[in-house]
Design a protein around this nucleic acid. Sequence first.
RNA 1: GGUCCCGUAGCUCAACCGGAUAGAGCAACUGCCUUCUAAGCAGUAGGUUGUGGGUUCGACUCCCGCCGGGAUCACCA
Length: 604
Amino acid sequence: MRNETRFEPGLKDSIRRAVRELYGYDTTDAEISLQETRREFEGDVTLVVFPFIKKSGKSPEKTAQEIGTFLTSSNKQVGSFNVVKGFLNLLIDDAYWLEFFRSAVEDPAVLLDLRRHPHLFIPPGHLMVEYSSPNTNKPLHLGHIRNNLLGYSVSEILKAAGHDVRKVNLVNDRGIHICKSMLAWRDFGKGETPESSTLKGDHLVGKYYVLFDKKFKEQTEKLISGGMSREEAEKNAPIQLEIQEMLRKWEAGDVETIRLWKMMNGWVYEGFDETYRKLGVDFDKVYYESQTYLLGKKLVEEGLAKNLFFKKEDGSIWIDLSDEGYDEKLVLRGDGTSVYITQDLGTAQLRFDENPGLEKLIFVVGNEQEYHFKVLKEILRKLGRPWADGLFHLSYGMVDLPSGKMKSREGTVVDADDLIAEITDQAEMITRAQGKLDAYDTFEAKQLYHDLGMGALKYFILKVDPRKRMLFNPAESIDLNGNTGPFIQYTHARICSVLRKGSTLVRGNASGYQSLTGPEKQLLKLIHAYPEMLRNAALGLSPALAAGYSYEVAKAYNHFYHDHIVVDETAPDVSEFRIRLSRLTALVIKESLGLLGIVAPERM
RNA sequence: GGUCCCGUAGCUCAACCGGAUAGAGCAACUGCCUUCUAAGCAGUAGGUUGUGGGUUCGACUCCCGCCGGGAUCACCA
């Protein structure tokens, strides 16, 4: 975690003053490198003095010594210091930590509200986050899970940092691939419905999508054995010709086709809603591609009129982006129909039109579409849209299995609903074996198993830097010990248990407590760092920072808990302080887990 | 082939803008429940940060070459 802003303007200003008075020049911010003191040395913050030695003309040790002496006498936050090579370790006085503790006890908003910290404050913006973006021809899988969890968490982080955030979904509900499941159901489904089959709607539709593929393969193989080339066979399989016909009918608004489409998509949406509910994600608005795919043609005309685009002989329209390091890019087909990017140009325009003041549009989409989003942004920029710079592709890495990539055709896809069920079952087994929940009724217990299972899954996925590929091993499922969601949830439940026992001992604000033990101070420092973590997570769009933070806090609390008696009738001052410290710890754990969409249970 | 991303302990991941002896968890091994939740705590062991150069007081981090892996470059989305 960055520390340079942590001890607020005070410390940096003091350093600046020290350098000016001692060596007679003004430092730049970049030269003042503050970091957390490594555990093996004594201190809280460390100043790297190498940048100053040219001006001081003295050795690193001597320079550090001089700055340290200046700081202890000019800044009362600095209690003492020591020097190791070119590193000046500063010890922040306990009084500072205790003062912070009391202000947080009085008013927890000090922790949660960035407006309370001028040096951490981010000007609030009006943002939109698009995530999930499923196809309506098959159920959600592990890849979608990462997308959904990221999109939701990033939105929560941005909201917590003070932004106005709109979460949106863009459902890919039309097109030739959607027709595949429709056709297979119509011809082979015998009227099967989610009710009659007891299959979840999205799974039922997915079943017919797979069936289509099977029939298609059978037909092409047959044609190939009849002497046709593979390419020809794939073009001429009867079922292939039929879906093309179906898509034409759909686009022409054919009543029967539309009816079938609506019915089957309806099933899918019911299925998706259930999965979204289990994942705990939601949207302020859902866009449907069937309503947006025609948008964007006006922008194409505009680009043509401005000579940014050009028309080829066959009537197709292109933009030449070779000067920007990209290729020529098609923006409209020869027959005048939209391609993916046409639509995206249109929806971007629509969103900025619909949301006056919108500053940033964040697309949570896998990194295989990086090229697409670069091109999209570049085109909009060339079209003179001032908001084009506000487009941001939050490009996340794929989720790999031990066997390699997930391939739907090879049946190695990990289904989202199955995974959620398995993890929840596992959480239930382990929790029951612990036998700490006798007071819970069935409903509460079920809810808890779900919260724990999802805690494990969400933490596992979100703790990894979004940009990186990650590996998920379903066979080992998910650990519940160590650096995991349930470990942090457990710590929260543990604190709640302590608080239930000790709440009557708390009356004042522990003002009698004067000196901190090591573990107490460590915990307090981490609590103190919450706003800074929030700021960094928001600026970096990184749930991983919130995950890492919550883990650090949980570890520090368990250490503290192991070494100290919290509730002690015979030492009311100490108990009062430690109970209040526990309360603040529970608060930052609950908040940081909340940023990840993870519930912090009171018992487990 | 062009462009981009990745390579850290047996495994999964950290390491802030270039800072000190590269950190956690899992797996392995040792201890700790008569005391507030042992889903815990403490410890041992595990590394030439893919590789070779360069820049720097200082490189996992920046630059160049190589090796290995991935993505992308559709009148698909």
